[in-house]
Write a protein that binds this DNA or RNA. Structure first.
Lengths: 352, 352
DNA sequence: TTGAAAGCGTTACCAT
DNA sequence: ATGGTAACGCTTTCAA
């Protein structure tokens, strides 16, 4: 059905007939292959053009055995009809994946995160990049079982028994180290009561960072001050911040692990009567490009979407093209310290 | 090559042989078709599972004659290796397109905006949504020539001689009306010198809105106050604003047509010593979810990425599945008036 | 130099 | 109830 019943597409044989040659000749003439006399080649090309011939992509795929198509899936909100591009982090991942893939001559397919079981297997993909897989991710399992190389984090791949090495590669993020780095920094800067706003999803990013915070607190005998949001949203996020700051003994530092507009967060904190960094040290895990331009500039923890995507695609393409590169790469976050988390001591002692 | 040389994929015939039945039986058993005894079906399914059989997507595509894949391309920065997902508008379009496509059982492919000529034709697509085409867009032309239905704006489709109706549909935006609506609103609110920050790209969004502003000014004998940015970027945008506000006779209203963080813009204006809306009325064409939460809330012109994408996909799917729906849909922007562009008069006269 | 024919892996038709 | 066979549109090997 579809367009074919309206305009019966011009096929290779049609061109061949019209040009008075065989299919082989047409194929060779159009693909630059073979050793044809220039005259024949040009003639065929002219006929093909005049007929509006376009090769059928699906047939080529079948013949070629590969599709030059890479899938990318962000699993953060697997259970909901949410789509990743709403978050700056995923947008940037998708952007970077697309660019990297293109550079290798591959296209990118956005994979559905929900829907009928293994519906994703109907898409002809050479490889897949699964970002932030959930525990025992069925998507990872399915693709691996189907023999489609997957790049994801180490743990997700390991769950599928040793096939990881052969079937793809991993791009892992040391969320634990990243979170601890920030918490340590805040503590050194004089913070004693660090509050956190995080997400409550099943994605390993949230799971692991929340756990890291709890562990860090436990090690010091601190009570965790954390709000976990089930979904992103300006209002809910600001509400969470308001709640945390309203505690009887208010926090003296805030670390956000959810997407939000950093200048807006700053405004909100001010409207609540706190100054940054005077009353409240602030660090945001975000890719918001506005962060360096606020007053004061905001310290950020960035998860390097660009680098991550680049590495994932490189890994995937290496496997696909038979090169045996690294088994994987471990990333740690990019922590940019700015004025919003300047040590309290530096305020008390003028000079440096 | 690729994975096939490592793990020679299990094919339908392999399952058939292993199960001691024919290809047909396997196909029927797995696809629920045919009238097989439950015993046979279960047996085949078990064998298939144990062998890890997965149907070859490319072969199915060829057989089916359609791919259930929709392409989406944002043409704003065609000439550069830019990718659209960096801008909230495109992110939201892509998100919404993906959701709408999924709802119809279609997947989405992100199309390269540059690269070797007609490289996009190698991707097996049932239809394409081209956002903000450039003049005489080659991508639109190629797909139409290849018989792939395209949804884009009316003008782009019309350039390819009448095929529009048969080959796709249009989703047009009345940028002119939208821009005028904002300018009129600002004028009514008391603005006499309206400055504009826009983009300098070839996308019809920028082209048309800039032209609308110039026309509007010409009709009133005003001198245009406009800065056109060749590329997005926090720094350049704020720089442009600073420049405009530094004019000897400064503007009393600002209308931005480029992506940016609205709270940050507000801060910047304040740091330049102007108050909003007291000294400067402000309207931003943006999808920034922070806009309603700033102080004062910012008036926005939204280009309805969600609705647009939804309509485009519906149109495309209607064509693909042989339904003759609307030829197209004309959208006008969603103008949300908030405090940042409140009439100056209302400040002077207390009460309402 | 050119063409015929054999696949690629699936599904659908028709015969058994 | 099941199996053989053709067809989807292309590329490629091999023979002429």
């Amino acid at each position: 059905m579809s367009q074919s019943d309206r305009t019966p597409r011009v096929r290779l044989v049609d061109v061949a007939r019209a040009a008075g040659v065989s299919k082989t000749t047409v194929s060779d003439a159009l693909n630059g292959a073979g050793r044809l006399p220039a005259a024949t080649r040009e003639h065929v090309q002219k006929v093909a053009r005049s007929l509006g011939y376009r090769p059928n992509a699906a047939a080529r795929l079948l013949r070629a055995g590969h599709t030059r198509l890479l899938g990318v899936a962000a699993r953060e909100y697997v259970e909901t009809p949410w789509v990743y591009a709403d978050l700056a982090y995923f947008s940037q991942i998708v952007t970077a994946t697309t660019q990297a893939a293109l550079a290798h001559g591959y296209g990118v397919v956005l994979l559905p995160t929900y829907g009928p079981d293994d519906c994703w297997l109907d898409i002809p993909l050479d490889g897949v990049f699964v970002i932030d897989p959930v525990e025992g991710d069925p998507m990872v399992r399915d693709f691996l079982a189907a023999g489609v190389p997957v790049v994801s984090d180490r743990r997700a791949l390991a769950e599928v028994a040793g096939e990881a090495r052969a079937a793809g590669g991993w791009v892992d993020f040391d969320y634990d180290a990243a979170v601890r780095q920030v918490l340590d920094h805040l503590e050194e800067a004089g913070a004693e009561r660090i509050a956190v706003v995080a997400g409550a999803t099943t994605a390993c990013y949230h799971q692991q960072s929340v756990r890291a915070y709890h562990d860090w607190c436990a090690e010091r005998g601190h009570d965790p001050r954390i709000v976990c949001l089930p979904a992103p949203g300006v209002e809910q996020t600001l509400q969470a911040v308001t709640e945390l700051l309203a505690a009887p003994v208010p926090p003296d530092a805030l670390f956000t692990l959810v997407e939000l507009s950093t200048p807006l967060l700053l405004d909100t904190i001010r409207r609540l009567g706190r100054s940054v960094p005077g009353d409240l040290l602030l660090v945001c895990a975000t890719e918001d490009p506005a962060a360096p331009y606020t007053d004061p500039p905001i310290s950020t923890l960035g998860f390097l979407p660009g680098e991550t995507a680049q590495a994932a695609v490189d890994l995937l393409v290496d496997r696909l093209e038979g090169r045996d590169g690294d088994p994987g790469r471990l990333f740690s976050a990019g922590f940019q310290v700015r004025a919003s988390s300047a040590p309290k001591s530096s305020l008390k002692r003028p000079g440096h």
